[in-house]
Design a binder for these strands. Sequence first.
DNA 1: ACTATTTCCTGGATGC
DNA 2: TGCATCCAGGAAATAG
Length: 286
Amino acid sequence: MPELPEVETIARGLAKRVTGETVDSVWLGSKKEPLKSSAREIAAALEHSRIAAVRRMGKHIVFDLGRDAVVQKSVARAHSPAESTAPRAQWIVHLGMTGRLQVCEPQTEVEKHTHAIVRLSSGRELRFVDPRRFGRLSVAKAGDFDAGGIEPLEIDLESFIRLFHGRKTPIKSALLNQKLLRGVGNIYADESLFRAGIRPRRRAASLTREQLGKLLVAVKDVLKEAIALGGSSISDYVDADGEEGFFQLNHRVYGREGKPCLVCKTPIKRVVIAGRSSHYCPKCQK
DNA sequence: ACTATTTCCTGGATGC
DNA sequence: TGCATCCAGGAAATAG
């Protein structure tokens, strides 16, 4: 369940180890399942490209791809140098529920459910492993990829209020809607609503400006605290170094059904909203 | 134009 | 111990 803080942690770790590397070749295990673009397009975009940057957009990891030195030289003769060095494509990875990107030596045993192997000029490999196959790989022209929604850590209060205007859907569902805010998932939606004192089933449109103001502060605080702790390690999440995050120790409602509320001791409730388990304190949240 | 529900997928947990 | 069933959930697809 990598959400914004986990994806941010992973993207930072990957940026540290693969920025500047050139892709020699690519192996894709399947022609379809995890691929949103065709295998041919993905391989063509990656091979002989230089990884100029790795960054996060919502829950997506974006690799900005430029041309490698050899191609650059030949292109520079015919075109302007500026044209040849500008990033020309992007490789976009969504980890789904169980996806991982690991950087390893080629002799490292290939794990079960490895769907892609990107061979780097340093000899190391970047592998995409995803048992549940909810993850997705795609490519786009530089700047073309649209992750939808607005980054929750960048949005201002008025825009945040506007997002929920007139929406009858439960606020929990609205927070999970990536076309509104991008990056908030089930854990951080529950934790944010608890901190803001708002029940997950409340209709988005019924919230006052004051409540939405509180919610926005809660969302930003929760995400920032989680990033600082390297994300939440539940089930099999580890970052690019194989390190676990620690924010799960700070969860106040998620996964605490029946346990006493840390504020008022009332047992935490769990209900299903939009097919997602949602945890809240019936006394602290109205 | 929205909103709600179903589907995809596997491993780990649970129950008998 | 073994086997069946349930559950986790992001996002696309489908239904209303």
